[in-house]
Nucleic acid binder design. Structure first.
Lengths: 236, 236
DNA sequence: GCAAAAGTGTTAAAGCTACACCCATGT
DNA sequence: ACATGGGTGTAGCTTTAACACTTTTGC
């Protein structure tokens, strides 16, 4: 008996959760759909996997299409496979998660796809199971940014420590102590002082740092334990 | 234009990495294939996703088929999607990872599938990209067992602290200090002393503990930082 | 000179590591 | 009684959290 013969072929979609950071809050790049199904509603950027295309290549194609960017941070999060998740036809969706510096993207491409940066707090309801996907991606970001130096992917080449702190505060939706944060970050030796100052500031100008890329590679899996444990009720 | 019409439908497989613990080392449940393709070679347990079946249900079906077990710990790890990963026909594989107590499985079912428990250290070469999948699963286990109380899934209902320690030593392939381990584990308050003793021991009989299930649920995401940071060369 | 933001220092508590010592069991 | 493995205690070190003070800049 040939096991392949009787198995069902099905559609495979790729959906991308694209995070950016505007300096204050986390943003998502979302599409206002001008095509069916669910025309007029909000969704993630996505597309179907091509016949002759590796999965990761498909994700990169879709991200490039929308943002004009290559070599950005992309990670596969999970595959969603409920039978009826797409009302048109059974479709699996492999979900990828991308971190980009919000200043870098191609404005024309974004406009052409009718895409918009939307603050996480103001996210509209999305189609299908896309809301659940975003939830999972945020979980993933929180989980991983505490263990690996992921945050840098969301910042420009040169950044200040207070900027980095704001990013972490946005990711975890909590306030952090400025002094301890700075000490902790510097103790990783992942940052190199460029000697330059941040001229955007109106008060004391902060030092601009850049990432030590070699050390970043080396330390990716031994980042520090960043967040305090979430406070849980001590029932018993 | 209908985007669905021109997209390619493809096969979707599910492959399961099944970990067990024999008291000394980590084991994998592997299949010696008595069917084509790659008949006679070793592979993971797997199958095709059915038309009317959710992804997770498919994984549970396959695991139940082989082990006779339900309600075991299952997690989706990743989807593998290289164009030529299956030489017969393009097939995506969604990989799941399961932890079971090695004593529990249905011997008959295992035999019927020509499956065998094999110590991780003696793993034969597997077909297709299954070796890479196992590598990823081990990574996942190491990563997550340090952050969540996963280890308990691999042990029987009642277990001793030295048993648990041996399990962690097997997962991380390192020796741990008996005294510090015990203190650390007990400080989580996740274990309840049953008052019973382990009669298998030939010397001093260790206390048997069981998991505090309620507290386990509660603390799943705030497990302690288990492993010391991997020692890295301090270049610079 | 004042307000606002950034950089540096200190100290007490908590957690971790590396040990030593005692107890229970089978031979 | 002794060898083996299990349970508990402690001292010193490191890390962390919480806090105060000083510096730079624009107005």
């Amino acid at each position: 008996m040939n096991r392949y013969a009787h198995a069902k072929r099905m559609l495979v979609a790729i959906d991308c959760i694209i995070f950016g950071f505007d300096g204050e809050e986390l943003d998502l790049l979302l599409i206002k759909r001008n095509f069916e199904p669910e025309k007029g509603n909000w969704s993630l950027m996505g597309g179907f996997l091509n016949e002759d295309e590796d999965l990761e290549d498909g994700a990169e194609r879709i991200l490039y299409d929308l943002t004009g960017l290559k070599n950005i941070y992309v990670e596969q999060i999970a595959t969603f496979g409920k039978v009826d998740r797409d009302p048109v036809e059974r479709t699996l969706s492999v979900v990828f998660f991308a971190l980009i510096n919000i200043k870098d993207h191609d404005q024309e491409a974004v406009k052409a796809h009718n895409a918009h940066w939307i603050t996480l707090g103001k996210k509209p309801k999305l189609i299908f199971d896309h809301d659940i996907m975003v939830g999972r991606a945020l979980e993933h970001l929180r989980y991983n940014a505490a263990l690996h130096p992921l945050g840098f992917e969301l910042l420009p080449e040169k950044f200040t420590i207070p900027q980095l702190q704001k990013l972490y505060e946005a990711i975890y939706d909590m306030k952090l102590d400025r002094r301890n944060f700075s000490r902790k970050i510097l103790s990783t030796k992942l940052l190199i002082d460029t000697g330059e100052k941040d001229n955007n500031s109106t008060t004391k100008k902060a030092n601009l740092f850049r990432l030590d890329k070699a050390r970043y590679q080396q330390k990716f899996y031994s980042f520090w334990h960043f967040m305090p444990d979430p406070a849980l009720p001590e029932s018993l």
